[in-house]
Design a protein around this nucleic acid. Sequence first.
DNA 1: TCCTCTTGTAAAATCGATTTAGCAACATAT
DNA 2: ATATGTTGCTAAATCGATTTTACAAGAGGA
Lengths: 342, 342
Amino acid sequence: MKNTSLSDIARKLGVSTTLVSLVLNGKSKESRINKEMAQKVLKTASEMNYKPNQLARGLRTGKTHTLALIVADISNIFFARLARVIEDEAGKFGYKVMFGSSDENPEELDEMLNIFQERKVDGFIISPTIGSAKFITELKKKNIPFVLIDRYFPKIKSNYVIVDNYNASYRATSHLLKFGYKRIGTLTISPELSQMRDRMSGFKQALRDEGIRFENKFVGDIEYNDLRESVFENVKKLLSPPLNARALYFQNYILGVAGLECIKEMKLRVPLDVAVVCFDDPIEFRLFETPITAIKQPVEEIGEQAVRILLDELNGSSTGERNVVLPTQFHVRRSCGNLDFL
Amino acid sequence: MKNTSLSDIARKLGVSTTLVSLVLNGKSKESRINKEMAQKVLKTASEMNYKPNQLARGLRTGKTHTLALIVADISNIFFARLARVIEDEAGKFGYKVMFGSSDENPEELDEMLNIFQERKVDGFIISPTIGSAKFITELKKKNIPFVLIDRYFPKIKSNYVIVDNYNASYRATSHLLKFGYKRIGTLTISPELSQMRDRMSGFKQALRDEGIRFENKFVGDIEYNDLRESVFENVKKLLSPPLNARALYFQNYILGVAGLECIKEMKLRVPLDVAVVCFDDPIEFRLFETPITAIKQPVEEIGEQAVRILLDELNGSSTGERNVVLPTQFHVRRSCGNLDFL
DNA sequence: TCCTCTTGTAAAATCGATTTAGCAACATAT
DNA sequence: ATATGTTGCTAAATCGATTTTACAAGAGGA
């Protein structure tokens, strides 16, 4: 039941494996293989249902046509969608994808980097965790092609594809301010991650530009574990005395979903009792009473660009680090107040 | 910058690669390697930062410690969660996972089977599409280990892990019937898939057992493409004259989410104007006004069992086909009417 | 005739591991 | 003195491809 190999074909035809290999790799012309011979090889290969052993090929050529995708959690819909885009885009060029979830744990990430290197993947697409800078630097030293997505390290020169978190955040916050809200609470998570830092900066700057002093007590820093509990607790705190926030900005979709669930539980109305904007625009929101004003990330483009950049580097057609910052879309809906006002 | 290989270590120590290989594979004892020598090898290997080339190893041993996961769409949250469970469970035993999305297209699936075979994955976990029976049969003939999930082929003897769709569906339908609803509409998609067929059977049988005649016009068969449109259209048709359904059973979560969105758009109240049950219990529902009565699939267990069965087979410790039918949980909430009634 | 070129093919090295078979050298038993 | 065992290690084959080098045979030119 063994698969047929090159030498099986060669033996059957009484020729060398060299010849068979050349023909099957489409090098008949350059290698001046007799046309009839080439035909015979092709025919026999297909008759014998020949499938090249990619391990052997990879061992010899040093290319596996496999990419590794490392994200925080593949079951997070954001990364799941990204995975699909990356799969499709990579597939167009004959690449397959292996994946791993780091759970935002740098040691996990490091282990995955090692395991995937042992398996000789051609390149990496990585959503790096906090504290993984040294591992990324190592990767760079080894000259292994990679692209960071979603987050990046300002201090490390490398390829990355992210969105314009600062401006998106600034805009969302300004939107709330335009409605006259002064007491704006916000929820963040893992604020050390570059994208969360940028979002927070945008938030602060928008306040500042309206002459409102930023106060730390209006920020809820959510625990990665025990997330729902933590969100509920913080939302309740923000919306009650003495803080009495009248508007909330959720800095990602997980926070937004849990936050709205809490608001629903508290029987508060959006936007009557509390105005809401959210970074990310998940389908979940479609079932919520009030359509939510939200920032939409260009998931397709992030994935596509990441793959393109990586493949360019694999093909040697890259020219230095590529840093892509994609714009987001701001969808204004009814969750901040009457739109006629605008 | 080449990675260090076995022979690099061997050369450095002036010994054979055999010895190095034996030591690094923990076979010092059986091979009666001198303890001091073993120590030296271990030390040198770690100093030289040796990482075995898994391509070479795989080529020689015929094992890659890689599994392939083929689903309809990795960005579908159901499959994304499954992927995560499978990743974790496989990881415990040193396996990595490659994935592919078939888009319910049998030709795509076949191509993936081939590509992953070329890459010598050790086994497959597959959510098979309609019309892929012949490819699965081929796989079986080749003696390649695989486990089907979510769906299966009654005519093909093979491993599979599914849920008890029939009974879950029966129960959900009975639940609606208990509230006195007679005009129950249902939405399905790709009804040829085994799991959808079983769900439909359960639905029909529950009606029959209550002496209600099943009528085809109460079934909405949704288009896989153009899904949202199709759901909206069908929900509207079911809830309007002449059908006037007063209860809806959504046979999966995608249908449920779109269906509820439509109900919300129609400004109908759940359960006052229309009662709802759904197969699957997605978090989306948490944002909907009324908590939805739903069937919850044991995603973790599906993934874990699939991996276990596959690994058992890879280790030769399997004993014939394993067919696992897992029970679901039925979460009764308020979407069918007043619970005091029960 | 000798030289060069072209055509068509093959031998052998190589990628980096695992694994089988076996060989010295010394110890112990008969 | 001879057989037998044990210890410690290595040579070489192998997995299945790619790729470099080479070489024979015939054609054409000087």
